[in-house]
Design a protein around this nucleic acid. Sequence first.
DNA 1: GGTCAGCGCAACCAGGAGGTTGCCCAATGA
DNA 2: TCATTGGGCAACCTCCTGGTTGCGCTGACC
Lengths: 110, 110
Amino acid sequence: MSRTSLRGRSPASVFSALGDTTRLELVARLSDGKQHSITELTDGLALTRQAVTKHLQVLSGAGLVTRKRIGRESRFDMRPDAIADARDYLTRVSDQWDQAIARLRAAVEE
Amino acid sequence: MSRTSLRGRSPASVFSALGDTTRLELVARLSDGKQHSITELTDGLALTRQAVTKHLQVLSGAGLVTRKRIGRESRFDMRPDAIADARDYLTRVSDQWDQAIARLRAAVEE
DNA sequence: GGTCAGCGCAACCAGGAGGTTGCCCAATGA
DNA sequence: TCATTGGGCAACCTCCTGGTTGCGCTGACC
């Protein structure tokens, strides 16, 4: 279903956003269900705050994460729908392959 | 399990390989379970054979696809294990998020 | 009010990604 | 044998990406 309308967030853009170890790390940290500020996420990352900001923008652009300004800080939290969609996409590819293989096998064996 | 030992193929590299519409298209075509040559895959893609070759190298490097030289042509076919691994990774992230949310909710409500 | 912490914006830079062209090599098949 | 077909290799180009630094702004706190 994915009702929350991830329009424009193509699977490619989601995969691309996940295709970076730093961003995967950020996603891992954000998957604790809590909100995190930028400096908090920067902590322990051997990167500038600006670099982390850019990564968060990429994640946000892919719909993996949402930003919310609270006072002087930007809070980010995960939006798991995009992840679910990406997983569904992979499931579909897998299924397609499985079925194709089954058909080929059946065609040979009969 | 994923016994075929996809060592070195980090999730990030798999996601990165999938993070391109052309490569997603190639994966879609290859998920018919058959082997395809390069010129065959180039057909209808508005790209040079060389460009497609590079994309296939990326897919191969991520373990999504294998090459086999037969006569004068290179045959490619899908290796679905990498896809399954990527999907499992996303499932793990989703589960982690679900559990975290459940814990937070329980902590609030009691 | 002044200071500090948290960010945003813009400029800049090096390296990699995606793509092309040109050339050459090996199989294939008439 | 010889033309054709499928590919590999290398050079080259452009644009995007990941990263930095510098600066200025605003909210929090004493």
